[in-house]
Design a protein around this nucleic acid. Structure first.
Lengths: 132, 132
DNA sequence: ATAACTTCTGTAGTGGCTACAGGATCATAA
DNA sequence: TTATGATCCTGTAGCCACTACAGAAGTTAT
């Protein structure tokens, strides 16, 4: 049984975040010591590590919770997991495409901005060009 | 002189967002009609359009405000504009790289999840793999 | 007159934390 | 024993950039 600071160190999840997860019902409320301090088990730390990995993979917290439940429920519902993951991958791909588009437009806008122009080409574009 | 709804239509910026920009000091407070309703000029709509383009390019609102000021200040400080834009481009590139890394990891994690496995390979990985 | 639309102010919610404030408790050293 | 500092507690507010109300008042069309 370890305190919240140690659980934070072992899992990489911040102390405030652990308490936030508890408030939000993402993880169950831990036992308390006689002095009211939270006590965590190895299993609890495992949960936090699991959640941290999900978050690092970009899953929304709600999805991370779902995955945790799938992991702890006996069924090992591989199909549900894949479904969630595929949706997430699609989101990631969409974001990449959007960012690439943005980068291209930004490069174009700044292309003529190097030399000491009287008026800034990028600002001109922003003032006059059609949206998009 | 047009009302806020028309300004919203012409600029593509939502009504609530226009009021938000006013509250935040991103755009100046417009004149009011006798009935206390906001009145916008073509120039005001131009500002909103400018801001919308900046936001669509992914600039934070604070940067959008800075760009607007640069655009309206007489100097046309092309160097400041490029500096802001280059920083933003670097951010965009970083995000793309991170998302690509994520996508690769997610693909790897779901690679063996197709057939009817007894236990889910992805969940196993999330439970046991080292962070990263 | 009635209905439907628009606008007004003010407040709260979104996601996922993060940062306090103000207090209690614990561990360690002089 | 006492001082110091680390850790913990609860509760609240801030971040970003909106978005969504509630409840009231005014405008426009039939």
């Amino acid at each position: 049984m370890i305190a919240i600071g140690e659980a934070s160190r072992q899992s990489g999840v911040g102390i405030e975040t652990i308490r936030y997860y508890e408030r939000e019902g993402i993880v169950p409320k831990p036992k308390r010591a006689a002095n009211n301090r939270r006590l965590y088990t190895v299993h609890d730390v495992g949960r936090l590590l699991f959640l941290k990995k999900c978050r690092d993979l970009g899953f929304p917290l709600a999805d991370a919770k779902t995955l945790l439940n799938l992991s702890e429920g006996g069924g090992e519902d591989c199909q549900s997991v894949v479904k969630l993951a595929e949706l997430h991958i699609a989101n990631v791909r969409d974001k990449i495409a959007e960012l690439r588009r943005l980068e291209a437009v930004l490069r174009e806008l700044t292309a003529n901005c190097d030399s000491g122009n009287v008026s800034c080409p990028m600002l001109s574009q922003l003032r006059t060009a059609q949206g998009q």
